[in-house]
């Protein structure tokens, strides 16, 4: 039976995890490779690294992190952050990433999604969408794409954008609600559902998880096929296994392999 995926996401800056990992005794809580190994052992279904390194010179460090992770963890790995060219994708895949996530580069130039999917296959191109509720004239509301961590408005409708990038070859959508990110009050369910129901590819729900019910809601009400969370796992509040057991009790099909 096909299972729902639980994906922890690590923010990595200059080769270090931005917020240390607290859930097991690690020799070095700031080493993304150690965190990856711990999540692998804990039964995470996939792993996501988001590279928030600001300088171009330090980008090579991430490749080394990816390479060392791929040597130690035999699980799917998605890497995002600063992916702007076909060459960026090539070196990440060569280093051991299975999928790359493209964010602002796809907003500024949609054709990039097509070039990437044609070269590497739809299955490894994830488009990350950061969306925020916007009031429109006449009292209506819609979700629009924001870039630069939610600071810059683009005026692009999130649902239309999702459909467009999928038609260009995106194999998966990583959908983050910028209204909910960091709030711990749960996913933006109407947003998740609206996007998931309008594209044929898997949607990963992200942004706002504060408890385990939220994970269930993202799948059941949001129609996502996978859920991504960071702080509830990193700070040791819940283990991956606790999350999965909770989702099983809610009736969702989960992978509980030893």
């Amino acid at each position: 039976m096909f299972k729902v995926r639980v994906i922890p996401c690590l923010d990595v800056k200059d080769g270090r995890v931005v917020k240390g990992i607290n859930f097991v005794d690690l020799r070095d809580a700031g080493d993304p490779v150690e965190a990856a190994i711990a999540y692998d052992a804990a039964g995470a279904d996939e792993l996501c690294f988001l590279d928030i390194t600001a300088t171009h010179e330090n980008r090579g460090i991430m490749l080394d992190v990816v390479r060392r992770t791929a040597e130690a963890c035999f699980m799917p790995l998605t890497v995002g952050g600063g992916v702007r060219t076909v060459d960026d994708i090539k070196v990440l895949l060569r280093s051991g990433a299975d999928k790359v996530s493209i964010n602002s580069a796809a907003v500024s130039r949609r054709e990039f999604v097509k070039e990437a999917a044609e070269k590497f296959g739809d299955q490894c191109i994830v488009v990350a969408i950061d969306a925020k509720r916007v009031k429109r004239g006449g009292g209506g509301e819609r979700w629009e794409i924001f870039t630069h961590g939610g600071r810059n408005s683009t005026g692009i409708d999130a649902i239309e954008y999702a459909q467009e990038v999928v038609s260009l070859g995106a194999g998966e959508i990583l959908l983050t609600s910028m209204d909910r990110d960091g709030t711990r009050i749960g996913f933006d369910i109407p947003l998740t559902q609206a996007v998931a129901d309008s594209v044929p590819v898997p949607v990963i729900a992200s942004g706002g998880v504060g408890n385990l019910d939220h994970l269930v809601d993202g799948i059941r009400q949001g129609h996502a096929t996978a859920v991504l969370a960071a702080s509830i796992f990193h700070f040791g509040e819940f283990t991956i296994r606790q999350a999965k057991d909770h989702m099983v009790r809610a009736g969702l099909p989960m992978r509980l392999d030893p």
């Binding site: 096909f2 729902v4 995926r5 194999g171 998966e172 898997p202 992978r255």
Partner: peptide, 12 residues
């Protein structure tokens, strides 16, 4: 209807 393509994830 709710199954997406690609078949992406874990299966028995």
């Amino acid at each position: 209807e709710n199954l997406k393509i690609p078949h992406m994830g874990w299966n028995t």
